[in-house]
Nucleic acid binder design. Structure first.
Lengths: 200, 200
DNA sequence: GTCTATATGAAGATAGAC
DNA sequence: GTCTATCTTCATATAGAC
């Protein structure tokens, strides 16, 4: 029952079990007992690796944020606004649409008062990166005369809001996640709206 | 200490104290002891009026939803899209911008798995009413040839998303609430975007 | 109906053996 | 480092007197 003292892999096992538990039932309802059981490890071992429930939760969130922030390096900009915006939109959609990400943002928003810095980290790793990326692009194209955007910051945020709107009712537990076709319609509609409204 | 047996006003006192407590610290962290103390009532009295913590919470949410749903009766439609959309936008903004409503949607989203029907009630009383109102208006104006909206349902949801986007980072604990001037900018930008993109 | 006092159980965290 | 067993706290809910 004790294959090797100081097993570094055990930390990963615990973190994995904890992530699953947190994402399934939320921070409050996830007990350290249940996490230890799921990891097939004693509770004390959990406490040896992570000093408290809060630290364990923070480790989970940080891991998830690192994944997101690296996704945007592949986004390429060119002078075709519709094409570029559509590319960004797809990246963003794929970034937020997994079941795990849905749970994560719901739980983080819920726990924002208790973990203000974690909520900030998440927002800055996801939505904020997207928004800045779009805003920079709109500014650039306006400077070049390809587009005409008076307020790139707000427009970027609202483009982002148009995309997120197709997930809002899912986050509220209203409906199952939208199919890929429906997501595509939201992207098309948003891109077309920007393209028409910001024509130079 | 017992002014009149069966005091109906006491129920309101309890409900008020409970609402305040729930909105301040969330469902989990609000203890029945604290609520009873805040209402200057014994805990047992709370249980006499509301059978359980869940029922007390539900009563609070339902009250808040009733307020919202009645706000939209005053919205008037006419054939000037920019003016009408701006009116709707203002109504919506004033509906969601109070500190209480911010807390409520955060808490409800957090507790959506535990109270699925309450989350639904909230969404249907607020966002859904707004969305349907906008969608109907866009359809109507398209039929009359004033606007040209191919997909009123999605466009309405995205108009809504554009407005909500100015509250998102607040909900994430990133920033203090936007000033009235900033809200106005979001409204202007959103209305202008629809107006340009949906010109007949 | 309202109060004081208590039962019951769950969960975070720790002590001490190996 | 890991395990079993335990401590402590606190919150929901109830019992019984007035």
């Amino acid at each position: 029952m004790n294959p090797a003292p100081d097993n570094p892999a055990k930390r990963e096992v615990i973190l994995y079990a904890a992530s699953k538990m947190f994402l399934e039932v939320g921070f409050g309802a996830a007990s350290m007992d249940a996490i230890a059981n799921a990891a097939k490890v004693s509770k004390q071992t959990v406490y040896n690796h992570f000093g408290s429930k809060e630290e364990l939760f923070a480790a989970m969130v940080r891991g998830s944020c690192d994944q997101m922030i690296s996704a945007f390096t592949e986004a390429t900009k060119d002078d075709n606004p519709e094409k570029t915006l559509r590319t960004i939109a797809h990246l963003f959609m794929s970034m937020i649409s997994s079941k795990e990400k849905q749970s994560l943002r719901r739980i983080l928003m819920a726990e924002a008062p208790r973990f203000p810095e974690l909520a900030r980290i998440y927002y800055q790793s996801g939505p904020e990166v997207t928004r800045k990326f779009i805003a920079d692009y709109l500014s650039e194209q306006t400077r070049r005369g390809v587009l005409r955007v008076d307020n790139p910051r707000i427009t970027a945020e609202q483009f982002f809001g148009m995309l997120y709107s197709c997930w809002m009712r899912v986050d509220w537990g209203m409906e199952p996640p939208p199919s890929r076709e429906i997501q595509e319609k939201y992207i098309d509609n948003a891109v077309a709206m920007i393209a028409k409204a910001c024509r130079a």
